[in-house]
């Protein structure tokens, strides 16, 4: 990036400090990766780190936020709302815009596509989505995982993640959330739904154990880089 930035940028989101990991450099637009939501984010952490490394090989910087209440964030998950996550993505895009002097490419994965329309359009060069899902689908799959893993203990009404109930401002807002705005949509080769491009790989977000697929990460990085190169100001 033309103006070096810290490896970990600190952002203030609704009064709390949150963290954005930044990798690589290059005189090009940076890519803001928006991770999947809930358990899918954990299963895809390795994949996203590999995508960042591959983007760096291509000379393109990238950034990955820890959404409030997840990863290194100190915000209690029980208090997190969808607005917090959207504000984090918006602030991250704004920071990359300032740091590189160019609008950022946004590359979202799965439920991350529900957040990628949050930034100021002036901060965004284009949106890329891998296997986007609706908020209602995210909640349904969360509910199934919760029921399948049900153990003894007091049942919690409503959606739960890792033993913590989702705040009304998260569950309620997710129920109605849809991916919005124009984007290049990519899916895996085995996925029958419509897509602009199909990439090799397997649905890492549903793996029983976190897996690693360097070829998939490389294909993702190359497709993002190609789209970034065609966007204005990249």
């Amino acid at each position: 990036m033309s103006n070096p930035v810290a490896d970990v940028a600190r952002l203030t989101i609704h009064g709390r400090e949150e963290y954005l990991r930044i990798v690589g450099s290059g005189d090009t637009a940076a890519v803001l990766l928006v991770p999947p939501l809930f358990g899918e984010a954990n299963r895809c952490r390795r994949l996203l780190a590999d995508v960042m490394a591959e983007l760096a090989v291509l000379g393109r910087g990238s950034a990955l936020p820890d959404l409030p209440g997840t990863g290194e964030s100190l915000t209690p998950f029980a208090a997190v709302t969808l607005a917090d996550w959207r504000a984090m993505v918006a602030a991250s895009a704004a920071l990359l815009h300032v740091a590189t002097g160019r609008p950022a490419m946004i590359a979202s994965f799965r439920g991350g596509a529900l957040l990628d329309d949050a930034p100021d359009p002036a901060d965004v060069a284009g949106c890329w989505r891998m296997t986007p899902v609706e908020g209602a689908t995210v909640l349904r799959e969360l509910g199934r995982a919760q029921r399948m893993a049900a153990t003894s203990g007091a049942p919690i009404s409503g959606p739960v993640f890792a033993g913590t109930a989702l705040a009304a401002g998260l569950a309620g807002a997710l129920a109605a959330a849809l991916p919005d705005g124009a984007a290049r949509v990519v899916r895996l080769a085995g996925d029958g739904k419509g897509a602009d491009e199909r990439l090799p790989g397997s649905p890492m977000w549903r793996r029983a154990e976190p897996g690693r697929d360097r070829a998939m990460a490389k294909a993702i990085a190359q497709d993002i880089d190609r789209m970034a190169a065609t966007c204005a100001n990249s």
Partner: peptide, 12 residues
């Protein structure tokens, strides 16, 4: 590999 959490992902 097939524990209760994996069943959820497998079926979905």
């Amino acid at each position: 590999e097939l524990d209760s959490m994996a069943v959820a992902g497998l079926l979905t």
